[in-house]
Amino acid sequence: MRKKLNYKRMEGLQGYVFILPWIVGFIAFTAGPLIFSFAASFTNYNITSQMDFVGFDNYENLFTADNLFWTSLYNTLYYVLFSIPLTTAGAIFLSALLNQDVPGIRFFRTIYYLPAVLSGVGVYLLWMQLLDPGTGLVNTALGWFGIPGPNWLFDPDWTKPALIFMKLWSVGGGMLLYLASMQGVSKSLYEAAKIDGASSWQQFRFITIPMITPVIFFDIVTSLIGGFQIFQEAYVMSNGEGGPVNSMLFYNLYMWKKAFESFDMGYAMAMSWILFIIVFIITIINLKLAPRWVHYEGEER
């Protein structure tokens, strides 16, 4: 029996009209580019003259002959490994403080959140000044306590800690995320715990933390994906070079230089796929580990 074009099917067609912009955008700006990039990663594509198939040469060179690739991967892992636990813990701690009944709490929340909305070159310039060894605020303040400040952005050992330090300034973004979910925890749970004799710390440890694990999970997954893509701050603060001594040459910065400075497009696209795979595997691991520690409330959703 042939299906009639009834109104339910008409409604379905309307649905496709609604999402049509996304479908077009997805094909043109995501799926198409992904396919092209995957194919091109096996060529010596340089955008203008050549696109010859070179097999796994790009990948092989990356792993065996390119020291800078390893440097950039190391730098990126260093950044991710330190910045994510620090920002996550910082955000949870801050939101616990801001979840209390203290006079002026709304004002405090605003202040702590402010740095999170600031980004771009202006912020990087500000931090370059703050971290300036001679005239900057950070070393001046350290000096009050008799601590000789490091050379930060001029010392290869201190560039990455400097970036992590800067990242911690905007911890308020994550704080709001946690605060929102902490406020969603039912008061009666805390009251029940009090009657059971739990101390404030125990209430935090055994009620607050488990109840907000879904948000912790969400935050970790998204900041991992974001952390691997650190680029702008390193580009601006090292004048697009990744120095000193390649200590700020993060993965994406190196890829950028390969793609848009030396136009080794094929090579850069191979790099991008390696990053994609790394991020993908880490996300999958996260998803697999989640049931062990993430607590989901009922079956509401």
Partner: peptide, 22 residues
């Protein structure tokens, strides 16, 4: 699919997008 595209690192599509726009 919409949600999963949020997982794709921007640089993976950035280079081919540049090619497209150029």
């Amino acid at each position: 699919i919409v949600l999963s595209t949020m997982m794709i690192p921007g640089f993976v599509t950035l280079i081919p997008q540049y090619v497209l726009f150029s």
